[in-house]
């Protein structure tokens, strides 16, 4: 084996070992039946005196998935929440990334550090901090009440708004960083040329900056949208009784109902319905990475 092949083999081995193999296991479990045993699902293979004589599969989990409206609604609701959050993150993240990319070089690093700084604190602790802010007796409500702006505490926690807030807050760096990487590389001469040719600032932005930053926009949106769809912690802690997300359904199937096959089926469908088209879309995108 040549050294080059060995280097190339490493990422493939990694993907096979930590992505494909676990996925295959999940797929296998999704065809099993839940039962009281260790592990808590039926065997995939039919055995006779220790020898494998066939496979035993059931599609019941997938059938239930599409016949019970709970799951379909949860998929839609999660996608919608993730979509809106991604849009908000983009609207907030683009100006931030643009401002950092246009800042004087010596200040850029400081600004980037500030973007990454929240990662130094545990994600869970940061979400709990939001609970402390949003609670009826929390900092925001207490401050508003003492200023006389409201009479009774506002319902901030346990609402859909709190879930959007949490997702936008938690995933903003994932939007800003790829956008910044893109905008920072942008050739200033192109902007000057556009201006020389009579383009107004908004035209320069619309016809030069924005198209050239699209790969960054796409990367940022994917980095936010995909994890946001399956988010569990944020809707669990900040959401209320009305927040329906697939992550919570998955948790309930796995832990409360001990139905590993059902939760495996929910996972597989999530992957096929949501993630696969996105991956496909990205793979089919024309390569626009090269500088014009």
């Amino acid at each position: 084996m040549t050294r080059r092949a060995a280097v190339l083999a490493l990422p493939w081995l990694w993907a096979a070992l930590f992505l494909l193999l676990p996925l295959a296991l999940v797929l296998k479990i999704s065809f099993a039946e839940a039962q009281v045993s260790v592990p808590p699902y039926s065997d995939f293979f039919e055995r006779l005196d220790g020898a494998i004589v066939g496979v035993k599969t059931t599609f019941a989990n997938y059938q239930l998935l599409f016949s019970d409206s709970l799951y379909v609604r949860a998929y839609f609701s999660s996608s919608w929440i993730a979509f809106v959050s991604t849009l908000l993150t983009l609207l907030l993240g683009y100006p931030m990334a643009y401002a950092i990319a246009r800042a004087p070089a010596q200040r850029r690093n400081l600004l980037l550090v500030l973007i990454i700084l929240p990662f130094w604190t545990s994600f869970l602790v940061r979400i709990y901090a939001w609970m402390g802010l949003l609670r009826p007796t929390g900092i925001i409500n207490t401050a508003l009440q003492s200023l006389g702006m409201i009479d009774a505490p506002l319902q901030l926690l346990n609402t859909s708004g709190a879930v959007y807030l949490g997702i936008v807050y938690a995933y903003l760096p994932f939007m800003v960083l790829p956008l910044y990487a893109r905008l920072e590389k942008l050739d200033g001469a192109l902007l000057e040329a556009a201006a020389d040719l009579g383009a107004k600032p908004w035209q320069v932005f619309l016809h030069v900056t924005l198209p050239l930053s699209l790969p960054g926009v796409l990367a940022g949106c994917l980095l936010v949208f995909i994890p946001a769809v399956g988010e569990f912690v944020i809707p669990d802690l900040l959401g209320g009784a009305d927040t329906l997300m697939i992550g919570k359904v998955l948790w309930a199937e796995f832990f409360s109902n001990r139905d590993w096959p059902m939760s495996a089926a929910v996972t597989m469908v999530l992957l096929v319905v949501l993630v696969a088209p996105i991956m496909l879309f990205q793979a089919l995108q024309p390569r626009t990475d090269q500088r014009p």
Partner: peptide, 29 residues
């Protein structure tokens, strides 16, 4: 429950509630 039913938990003493204990016994763990 999820940890014990996955097998080889490495624990010597666990503290389950009634329904879980019943299922542990049924699953022979």
């Amino acid at each position: 429950e999820a940890k014990l039913l996955a097998g080889k938990s490495g624990y010597d003493v666990v503290v389950p509630n009634g329904p879980i204990l019943k299922r542990f016994i049924a699953a022979d763990v």
